[in-house]
Write a protein that binds this DNA or RNA. Structure first.
Length: 255
DNA sequence: ATGGTGGCACCGCCA
């Protein structure tokens, strides 16, 4: 079973990249974040005949998540709790009896902002979601754009960036607590190197300088982590006419 | 050099 994740930054703009990548890589499941499309405008027609089923939760302009699967998708939910907050950052589905949780963690703007407080609260809610709905002996994959670099290897300038909303103690702790509940970062399980980035800020032409961040993750509970054979970052250029600031991350599991 | 681009939906917000 091959599972991949990709922050699209508008799925409609990345359709050529997405369809091409699906055709070449044939993952069983692809989780997408920042689809930036309302549900009634989701480009379902474009995937007719692709062999993929898709479920999604979007809203106008921002956020939005989707799960593509070659096998039947069951038990979809688009909210982690009953807080009634509709930011379209969470979608869960079951595929081949494996629970897939796809999240677009809030970015947080600045550390003294309301948005940052929301980010921390959102992550605390996600922790409660896992605690109250599952036990870590179940096969669960949690993937997405976590907007968090977990250690110095995951950023291009650890000294300067320490304290950034995507590289600071509070967010590392919030994600760390969820990981401690029962998740393994399967990329790190297979690769200890630094500079293994999944995101480059296009405001700073950072791709050509490799001024990146590792913000995208595939996390697995023990029964799945034990079966994880590889986890790789896609290094191919991601489109020429229109850049995409994140790349694909893929993990392969036995069975 | 403290900026810069890109996407969406508007006349700014978010990353």
């Amino acid at each position: 079973m091959k599972i991949a994740t990709f922050n699209a930054n508008s799925i409609r703009s990345r359709m050529p990249i997405l369809l091409d990548w699906l055709g070449k890589n044939e993952p069983d499941v692809l989780c997408v974040q920042e689809t930036k499309v309302q549900d009634h405008d989701f480009p379902t027609d474009a995937f007719e005949g692709s062999g993929y089923e898709v479920v999604f939760k979007g809203q106008k302009k921002y956020n939005g998540v989707a799960i593509f699967s070659r096998s039947k998708i069951n038990d979809v939910s688009t909210e982690m709790d009953d807080a009634g907050d509709e930011q379209a950052r969470f979608i869960k589905a079951v595929v081949n009896k494996i629970t897939i949780v796809n999240t677009y963690v809030p970015q947080g703007f600045e550390r003294d902002s309301e948005k940052f407080a929301y980010k921390l609260d959102w992550l605390a809610r996600l922790k409660r979601y896992f605690e109250s709905n599952f036990t870590p002996d179940r096969p669960i994959i949690w993937v997405g754009d976590f907007n968090c670099a977990m250690d110095a290897r995951d950023v291009h300038d650890a000294e300067r960036l320490w304290g950034h909303v995507c590289y600071c103690q509070e967010v590392q702790d919030a994600i760390g607590k969820i990981a401690k509940w029962g998740f393994t970062d399967v990329f790190r399980m297979h690769n200890q190197e630094d500079k293994q980035y999944t995101f480059w800020d296009y405001r700073q032409m950072s791709f050509r300088r490799n001024s990146g961040w590792r913000l995208d993750y595939i996390m697995a509970t023990a029964p799945m982590a034990n079966k994880c054979k590889t986890c790789q970052i896609d290094k191919e250029p991601r489109g020429l006419e229109k850049p995409s600031d994140h790349t694909f991350l893929t993990a392969e599991f036995e069975g």
